[in-house]
Design a protein around this nucleic acid. Structure first.
Lengths: 233, 233
DNA sequence: CGTAGCCTTGAAGGTGATCAATGTTTGTGG
DNA sequence: CCACAAACATTGATCACCTTCAAGGCTACG
């Protein structure tokens, strides 16, 4: 599934628009993509497995991926959702013999630019600006953890509200779209609770038209109402 | 509380022994500590406040600090415990106008080497090896989060077991010492549960001599027993 | 000597888990 | 193209675990 160089050009212009590479030239990007391949993944395809030695890292081109781990009970615990433009496993590339700290699974048809670890060591690691931007991504991710952890003792409704608002696209004014197709099960796995509990709360919100689900995509119609759930109750 | 240069020399040799600075010369360290001061903190003293603009970061010299946030209900949610050698707030220094993502509070009498943000931008940021090591620290911290999140649905006894074993000093063979003075309240705040629940489980373990508490320090006498709680139940 | 923080124990109550059953959608192979 | 399986969504009943509330004791510290 290696890519021809003409195809690579298209990918380069694609990733050029990502936050991470703001201001980078195509030549620079080409160096950073040495040995890269585009992986076209189907829904639920497993890209990396938790515990495997990590020879590659990469960037989400389209679709989305979930980063998760199995619990002792054999269930899934989702750590993070990676939208297009997000880097996956770049943080651990500098370690001597890195192993994937999570499994990476496609959510719906997705594309991923897979880059060999050696390229990280050769070019990424020496690009201070890039490292710095990746560190910012990591620290954003860490902050999401913090916000969720701060709400651990709050009732489930508050935690789901926080979760949904966190994932919302705040660009539009009143309504918030969630650009990743999330199932109730995935929300449950991300919060460490059961599907049934999530459904009970969210179907309540659906009935009251606070949220809406059309074809896997959730829209928050009344963010103000969800905020109420976060604070008081 | 600025330090005289002779005093600084002592601090430099002190931090030279930390993992983070393995192989660094005193001259290099001196550059990285431009404008640094040693802060001597009393128990429960608050070093940084959540949300404040971050002008400084630093390294824990002795004692320990907890990084926490307030929950909407006014309680504490502890995100991380920083032992000597750990860096605090270094990850966010590269951001345009960084704000502390957590409050930093001393646990027992502690000392902290506080360094101005400008020094980070001038010298730390340009030291690729150092940045890389800090990224490893961050990724270790992230991994702790992952492990805890993977156990969210497990019974509380399993989560406390995981927590205690995670903090143990594995250097000694059979017994594990926890080098940070942890109160039951702090364990509760770190796990997002109530003190009472933690006490009920831990006093049970104390009665069975699985653990022992002497002067704020907890020793795991029977790590094998705690492991059992983690897995099956 | 009094207050503040921490530890402990007990009783009662609620939130979310578990179990079970059924419907719906999606994807796959004959 | 249909049949079947697998994943996802939904609802109800019961139950357990952890929380909440209350009260009391202990130690450290100004």
């Amino acid at each position: 599934m290696k890519l021809s160089s003409s195809y690579l050009q298209g990918v380069l212009t694609e990733i050029k628009s990502f936050q991470l590479f703001q201001g980078y030239s195509l030549e620079q990007l080409e160096k950073h993509c040495l040995g890269a391949e585009v992986l076209v993944c189907k829904h639920r395809e497993r890209l990396y497995e938790f515990g495997e030695v990590a020879h590659r890292f990469g960037i989400v081109l389209s679709g989305a991926f979930k980063l998760s781990r199995s619990t002792p009970a054999g269930e899934d615990a989702i750590m993070h959702f990676s939208p297009p433009g997000d880097v996956v496993a770049a943080f651990i590339m500098a370690q001597p013999q890195p192993r994937y700290p999570v499994s990476v699974i496609a959510m719906g048809p997705s594309r991923f630019l897979s880059i060999p670890r050696q390229t990280y060591l050769d070019t990424w690691k020496k690009d201070i600006e890039l490292i710095s931007r990746i560190q910012n991504l990591l620290s954003t991710r860490m902050n999401q953890f913090y916000s969720q952890k701060a709400m651990q003792k709050a009732p489930l409704s508050a935690r789901i509200a926080e979760f949904l608002l966190n994932f919302s696209d705040k660009s539009t004014a009143d309504e918030f779209d969630i650009r990743i197709p999330l199932t109730r099960k995935e929300i449950a796995d991300a919060l460490g609770v059961t599907v049934e509990s999530v459904i009970r709360i969210m179907s309540d919100w659906s009935k009251n038209s606070f949220i809406q689900t059309t074809e896997q995509f959730i829209t928050v119609l009344r963010p103000d109402k969800l905020l109420e759930f976060m604070q008081i109750e």
